[in-house]
Amino acid sequence: MPAAPETAHHTPPLNALRLSGIGKSFGGATILSGFSLDVPEGQRLALIGGSGSGKTTVLRLIAGLERPDAGDIELFGRRLPYRRFAGRLIPDDPPEMRELRRPIGMVFQHFNLFLHLTALENVTEAPIHVLGQPPAEARREALALLDSVGLADLADRYPRQLSGGQQQRVAIVRALALRPRVLLFDEVTASLDPEKVAEVLAVMRTLATDERVTMIIVTHEMGFAREVADRVVFMQRGVIVEDAPAIDFFTAPRDPRSRAFLNLAS
């Protein structure tokens, strides 16, 4: 790994993330162009907007699941070195990319738990094989984490033997096990039965009290966003329409489109 000069200690308002001039299109359709966003460390940012406005694409770009056509992504001040990838089964990012992106964790709308592994194995896989943690220690920590979300008893179940809410809690724990500094949540309650939404939101609410972790939360749960977010970014058709402190956004949205959206959502 190339060692970059460590200056982080003396520049307090460090951006966890900086997206500048990002362009992204799919098969001719431009989804993002000149998209820029700075996220200071420790912020809880709610990214909201109608369906198809590009929220998922932004998260996937940050997580490295999509490659930007233009622009840069910086993580804690370091630019991510993208390489053309052939779009085959597994992208061929440069190896240092994985190291740089390691502080990022992502939770998906459809959980994406590994179907052939138990809940516990889902959680311990990366700590053991990515962080190189001793298996016994990884298991101990995984069980503690599962216990903290009320799932210790179900550690040996396979994903298909769990409810959606339980699966999503395992998925959150799986992301936490790598001790991420940036957590991305993509509509993590959107495919849950209504009565399971609360149990997942409760877990996220607890997470949000940890000031060291930066969170970007894409959600349609406006009440939840209002409760945990410091800042709201409202997008429409790939463009940021309003970017405001959460209190301002929910009490006095400036843009008429934000107002229309909030009226619809409530």
Partner: peptide, 22 residues
């Protein structure tokens, strides 16, 4: 696709994604 993406989001190296997930 989600299985591969979850593995990538966990920063698993390509070989491991292949052996352990795919």
């Amino acid at each position: 696709r989600g299985q591969i993406e979850a593995a990538l989001a966990l920063h698993m190296p390509p070989n491991r994604v292949l052996r352990r997930v795919l």
